[in-house]
């Protein structure tokens, strides 16, 4: 997947700034946001509510004009476009919404056909394309059903098929799984990954769910207060214990404190000399420090074993020695008290 990225840049955002002026109070919703998404890559944009995710997506699609900055799609800055040119540029994006936003008045097949009608395809071409898309998302037998007769996951599959209909270059997903249960979320994410692998389409996913980023993103941008806080390839960002994404993407359930000294360490950083839980405990015991694992989260993300764990020391006087040892092994220890 990473290899495909050499094929070119699908989306480039440069210094995108949006200032809302509400009766004299200036609110900076986006503050010089830049990001580059290579073709065929799945890029996650994460952040809490109010971080600027919604404003970013509205500026990307021309629903909102940025105060300054550029959104370059296939070499063209779309922030300057109006009218028919803007409508044509919008067809380069297929948008998947949190609540699919399907039309209740249309069947699944007719919902998928809507962007094709708008783009002026003739009936025979539309029908052929809709059949192909229904097959792609596995809903051939549901063609004639109205959205009300479909489950949430099926509705989102129709939404994805509709977004893909007019052959966009970029699939823009706005919280695509936030309204779905865990099992359905998994199947929708698997579908998105499959579509990228089969069609080579570029995917931008806006989400507040760490699991979405962990499961399918190649690269990630963390937004906070309208600005880029952290950005990079997922495998690198997640292995770096100093990042906020490391903590957010590898959640650690911390047991209640009971007076024992605990050290939090990060697993999977490329510089570490120890790469496993056993190795860490063995390292400490070798120096006569009695230790145990109180809590741990270990996952294989983007092909790399990464994790966080809490090491509990039997004797509080060994704390400084233990920390030095772990520091030397580049495991980024922190006393968790």
């Amino acid at each position: 997947m990473v290899e495909q990225s050499s094929a070119g840049t699908a989306l480039a955002v440069r210094d995108l700034t949006k200032v809302f002026d509400a009766r004299g109070t200036r609110v900076t919703a986006l503050d010089a946001v830049s990001l580059t998404v290579p073709r065929g890559e799945i890029h996650g944009i994460v952040g809490r509510s109010g971080a600027g995710k919604s404003t970013l997506i509205r500026c990307l699609t021309g629903l909102e004009s940025p105060t300054s900055g550029e959104v370059v799609v296939a070499g063209e800055d779309i922030t300057a476009l109006r009218g028919a040119e803007l409508r044509a540029a919008r067809r380069r994006f297929g948008v998947v919404y949190q609540h699919a936003n399907l039309l209740d008045s249309r069947t699944a097949a007719d919902n998928i056909a809507l962007p094709l009608e708008v783009a002026g395809w003739d009936k025979a071409d539309r029908d052929a394309r809709v059949t192909e898309l229904l097959d792609l998302v596995g809903l051939t037998d549901r063609a004639g059903n109205h959205p009300g007769q479909l489950s949430g996951g099926q509705q989102q599959r129709v939404g994805i098929a509709r977004a893909l209909a007019a052959r966009p270059e970029i699939l823009l997903c706005d919280e695509p799984t936030s309204a779905l249960d865990a099992a359905t979320t998994g199947s929708i994410l698997a579908l998105l990954r499959e579509l990228r692998d089969r069609l080579g389409i570029t995917v931008v996913i806006i989400t507040h769910e760490p699991s979405v980023v962990r499961e399918i993103c190649d690269a990630v941008t963390l937004l906070g207060d309208g600005a880029v806080v952290e950005q990079g390839r997922l495998s690198e960002v997640i292995a770096d214990p100093t990042t906020r994404l490391h903590r957010e993407l590898i959640p650690l359930v911390e047991p209640a404190t009971d007076g024992l000294v605990r050290l939090q360490v990060a697993l999977g950083h490329p510089d570490s000399t120890v790469g496993s839980i056993d190795g860490i405990i063995a390292l400490l015991r070798h120096e006569g420090i009695e230790a145990d694992v109180a809590a741990a989260t270990v996952e294989t993300i983007a092909g790399r074993r990464v994790g966080r764990l809490l090491v509990e020391l039997a004797d509080a006087t060994t704390t400084d020695r233990a920390r030095d040892l772990l520091e030397q092994a580049r495991l980024h220890p922190e006393v968790a008290a």
Binding site: R87, N101, L102, L114, P115, V118
Partner: peptide
């Protein structure tokens, strides 16, 4: 949301 979806199709 439905209107926005159509607008994004270039409607």
């Amino acid at each position: 949301g439905k209107v926005e979806a159509a607008t994004m199709m270039g409607a």
